[in-house]
Design a binder for these strands. Sequence first.
DNA 1: ATCCAGCTTGGTCAACCGTCCAAGACGCTG
DNA 2: CAGCGTCTTGGACGGTTGACCAAGCTGGAT
Lengths: 199, 199
Amino acid sequence: MSRMAAKDRREELIAAAFRVMIREGVTKATTRAIVNEAKMPLGVFHYCFNSREELLQEVITRFTDSWTERVRKMSGTEGDLGSRVTKSLSAFWESVELSPGEHQVSYELTHYALRQAGFEELARRQYQHYLEAHQELLTEAAESTGIEWAVPIPVLARYLNSVLDGVTLTWLVDRNSEHSREILRLTGEQLLSLARERH
Amino acid sequence: MSRMAAKDRREELIAAAFRVMIREGVTKATTRAIVNEAKMPLGVFHYCFNSREELLQEVITRFTDSWTERVRKMSGTEGDLGSRVTKSLSAFWESVELSPGEHQVSYELTHYALRQAGFEELARRQYQHYLEAHQELLTEAAESTGIEWAVPIPVLARYLNSVLDGVTLTWLVDRNSEHSREILRLTGEQLLSLARERH
DNA sequence: ATCCAGCTTGGTCAACCGTCCAAGACGCTG
DNA sequence: CAGCGTCTTGGACGGTTGACCAAGCTGGAT
């Protein structure tokens, strides 16, 4: 194998682990499966990482960061509240149908973290960031369209996050795209009914 | 060990497996952990089950059946639509806070089934039954209070199921009971806004 | 040219896993 | 009591896993 800095190898291993997880699930992402995917000898693994858990931790944090960033970019910048909400929800759903594996892995990682001693905080941080991203989305939408929400933003953000989580999970199981889209449309309407003129 | 029919041992093993899963997670429910929990020698396992998968399959189907039955019993039988909805949602949430482990295991089993070859159908059946249970709940509530839903029942049932799934999952991570209850209250209101006089 | 920190590699280890089996013990039936 | 289906048990097998290590290699600094 050509010589490579440990830092660079870490990156490639993380990317390889991510691919394996999407293809075969988190539990199947063993040290051997990962180095095999990265086309590296087994010994590399524990030269770059102290443990498999350390890699998993890295995967989780990167996953969280990349997804929150993507949520932030879903914010539309023009049009009235209705079209902005619709556009955001459509963008979300597009990402789900485009890469279902990523979302499936996301759930698996959450449940893995909830069970793994010392990882609970990572799961909490994950959802904390999701909720904050949705809060920003709602806040910005309200401010730039001159309305205010009839419900506290943190609660509304959690409502939004929950619906998206639930509809995604259900879709991952039965792949009913038609009904899923209907729910997002319905959710959009419900959201609009909670907006009122700023007093 | 005192003599016992294989059928009876199967039941005890299933129950033991269930306890182990709640305590330590689905992946930790190994054949040895299960027989140890049931205080039986290891050899018993493959005398009662052809494989670990066969046990898992049994656990999943029983879990599904027991939960759908519980959902059906959440249907209130008196009062107007508003109080019935509130009561059902409260009953649901009570069950979540009372036994979080069961719900956590439910998610883990779903994701396990989605990855296990030949188990996809089991996961589909699980959510199919949940959706049907919610449909019955909504239908019965509408009929006995003289209203009709402004949205097709299957879609509304999926909406309800998604919200409950999402809020439960989020709560399992951050345990924010206050906000979770707020969401259920909000969901109840949204539901009521979708009910109209039968024409 | 020498040196040395950093990188590479294959093999090895103990632990754990699902599965299987031989040999025996039990208890009902004829 | 003899026979036989059913249950019981401890041990064993092959495979996989995370982790570790000794030995060698590489390439830039001195």
